[in-house]
Design a protein around this nucleic acid. Structure first.
Length: 373
RNA sequence: CCGAACUAACAGA
């Protein structure tokens, strides 16, 4: 059984849940590890339905099984379901509570996360890191720093959270200082520095860091590619894309984005889009922007209407496309149709009017905004 | 110590 279990785990890690299932089915005397590892194979590969099915068939689910389901549900966007599952769990432990803390933080519910943290009878390094990240990701930089100071031990993950928080705030100098003072680095820390320097448009610094860093992976290559796109260096972007040892949708999107901002003919951008093996919300949003930048608002709208799904960014980009092309009347309608409008999209609308010299309209929207920053 | 939890890349004003 031990060896079969190992096999299930291996297939699960390789992304082959079907193979794992075959091994699982072949075990006559399954033990609790067999079940958990099979569940792992499903959750790991995003097969939430299969996971749920297996979970309900489990003879004796334990904390580990519950925790995996908790994370799987959250991953599938079912936050409330995972919340409910957490409450109905017969038993909690350090790991399951930490997992819940992370989910709360991802939802932006920091107070609840902090409360859970404070109530925990024991905390591991991972727990502390989760709390640091919770603050860091939600813009509570000083709280994150305070946590970092208080925690009994720190590791590279703790430092990376702080570093990324600085990068998000646009503090290249501060980020550089933290990076230099960190006791250890990994590929995540280096990637953060790529992003930091890309923000300031310092492409040569990005390239230099890229060459200095000890390890490259898909993330680092894509960060480099994105930096080229942000600096409008299409030639660099193309070269990077060709030199990448492997590509995924994110890398394709970064390339598409490089074409989008390059001012190249729209047909070339479309060509890249059509060549892509897949397209997601991001790819479509880049197309909306591409059309908008070239004054083809109608095409932006068409792209928007043919997307398989939408999010706030795609809505906001559509709004901006109309605004930047002087189509203010439509902006109001878009804003009205937009579900769950946030600060960024409100601001886009305000600035649409402001740029058009319609100060009083801008002002009245500003006053009606539910949140401001 | 056969299993679960923490940080990074691609579109936003």
């Amino acid at each position: 059984v031990f060896l079969y279990n190992k096999l299930i785990e291996m297939f699960g890690r390789c992304g082959d849940a079907a193979q794992a299932r075959k091994v699982f089915n072949g075990i006559a005397a399954k033990n609790t590890f067999s079940w958990d590892l099979m569940l792992f194979a499903y959750t790991r590969n995003g097969q939430i339905r299969d996971a749920q099915c297996l979970f309900s068939a489990m003879p004796s689910p334990n904390v580990v099984s519950w925790t995996m389901m908790l994370c799987a549900l959250a991953e599938a966007g079912e936050f409330h379901a995972s919340m409910g599952l957490f409450q109905s769990m017969p038993l909690h432990n350090l790991v399951s509570v930490t997992a819940m803390l992370v989910l709360l933080a991802r939802e932006g519910r920091i107070e609840q996360a902090k409360k859970a943290f404070d109530n925990m009878p024991e905390r591991s390094l991972v727990t502390w890191n989760a709390m640091v990240a919770a603050f860091a990701r939600n813009g509570h930089f000083s709280d994150a720093k305070e946590m970092l100071k208080q925690m009994p031990q720190r590791n590279v993950v703790s430092w990376n959270s702080i570093l990324n928080s600085l990068v998000e705030r646009g503090g290249v100098e501060e980020a550089t200082c933290v990076f230099n003072d960190m006791p250890e680095w990994d590929v995540v820390s280096w990637t953060a520095m790529l992003a930091a320097n890309a923000q300031t448009g310092n492409l040569s610094k990005v390239k230099q860091l890229f060459d200095e860093m000890p390890v490259h992976n898909l993330y680092t290559w894509t960060a480099l590619l994105a930096a080229c796109a942000q600096s409008c260096s299409l030639e660099d972007a193309k070269r990077v894309f060709e030199n990448m040892p492997e590509r995924n949708l994110a890398s394709w999107n970064a390339l598409l984005s490089a074409f989008a901002t390059s001012g190249q003919d729209i047909e070339l951008v479309k060509q890249v889009f059509d060549e892509m093996p897949m397209a997601n919300v991001i790819s479509w949003t880049v197309m909306i922007v591409s059309y908008g930048l070239r004054g083809h608002v109608e095409e932006s709208k068409l792209a928007f209407d043919s997307m398989p799904e939408w999010n706030l960014v795609s809505w906001t980009k559509l709004l901006s496309a109309f605004a930047e092309n002087g189509r203010f009347e439509e902006c109001l309608g878009i804003s009205y149709d937009m579900p769950g409008q946030d600060v960024s999209s409100w601001t886009a609308l305000v600035s649409a009017y402001a740029q058009n010299g319609q100060i009083q309209n801008a002002r009245s929207i500003f006053e009606k905004m539910p949140q401001r920053n």
